[in-house]
Design a protein around this nucleic acid. Structure first.
Length: 151
DNA sequence: GCCAACGTTGGC
DNA sequence: GCCAACGTTGGC
């Protein structure tokens, strides 16, 4: 069992969209580190914090669950798609994705400001200055600490 | 809108 | 393999 944090811009896809969708293919990941986390680390049933980025305020707004094994991201093959990558092919897919399933929406956001001042979360990858990864692993203790902050 | 941080690209 | 130029992310 591993824990993760995934970022999404609420203007593009929010926790409410996630709740409506129920299950959502997480396509469009075009970063090797994030891809490798999905490929090498994610297991069906893993839990992930759902984080709203690029908004006011940014922060953790809920929990989702890994609902599939990694599989090729076909949007990379579609020349008209936003995340088209000519270097990826059906024979040799460069990018992958997983499905996420809605688990929970917090009654209130846990804002980034609060994460930053919580001593137990010191060292969390997402809090590191300049971190732009859209998928990061989260330590179990940190994951549980953030759930505690919602109570 | 600004800009720091970081990843990617491509010339050499 | 180096590194400058460029693009993107995301907090502020």
């Amino acid at each position: 069992m591993n824990y993760w944090l995934i970022k999404s811009e609420p203007d593009a896809f929010s926790i409410d969209d996630m709740e409506k969708a129920g299950t959502e293919p997480w396509d469009g990941i075009r970063n090797y580190q994030a891809r490798n986390f999905m490929r090498d680390g994610m297991e069906v049933g893993d839990l992930a914090l759902f984080y709203h980025s690029n908004c006011k305020p940014p922060g953790v707004v809920g929990v989702v669950k890994v609902a599939s094994r990694p599989y090729p991201d076909h949007t990379a093959w579609d020349a008209s798609a936003k995340y088209y990558d000519p270097k990826s092919s059906e024979e040799n897919p460069r990018w992958i994705m997983v499905d996420f399933e809605f688990v929970e929406k917090f009654s209130e956001i846990v804002p980034l400001d609060q994460l930053k001042v919580t001593p137990e979360l010191e060292g969390m990858l997402t809090l590191r200055k300049g971190n732009r990864l859209s998928i990061t692993p989260v330590e179990e203790a940190h994951f549980k600490q953030i759930l505690d902050l919602t109570k």
